[in-house]
Amino acid sequence: MNTYLAAFLVGGLICALGQVLVDTTRFTQGHILSAFTVAGGILAGLGLYKPLIDFAGAGATLPISSFGNALAQGAINEAKRTGFMGLLSGMFELTSSGIAAAIVFSFLIALFFDPRS
């Protein structure tokens, strides 16, 4: 299948699922984002998130669940190589660029912009 179509469908469905959960349960957006991150981590443990990325590309790497997956995948990979300590040292292996970018960009933007009403 066309990768663009796959990215659209998978990414869209993950977002739509989040929306339905926010609107039909008493949980807020913040709860759902944390839950999706946890879900991504669990899917990584089951070996299911990687196939989803292979299928949908950015459709699976951009939703926040991908962050949970990358953390867990980093920990699993490094633990395989170096044992228990690898759980800790490998955890941010794959996500460090995202987190670093988020911190640097957010800091600079907050420095230069002010909230509007």
């Binding site: 663009y4 990414g11 869209g12 977002c15 949908a56 459709g59």
Partner: peptide
């Protein structure tokens, strides 16, 4: 709201792709 989330989230991911 689910439909809007689907389309807009899908578009962001397509752009990401």
């Amino acid at each position: 709201r689910a439909l809007r989330a689907f389309v807009s989230g899908g578009l962001i991911c397509t752009f990401g792709q």
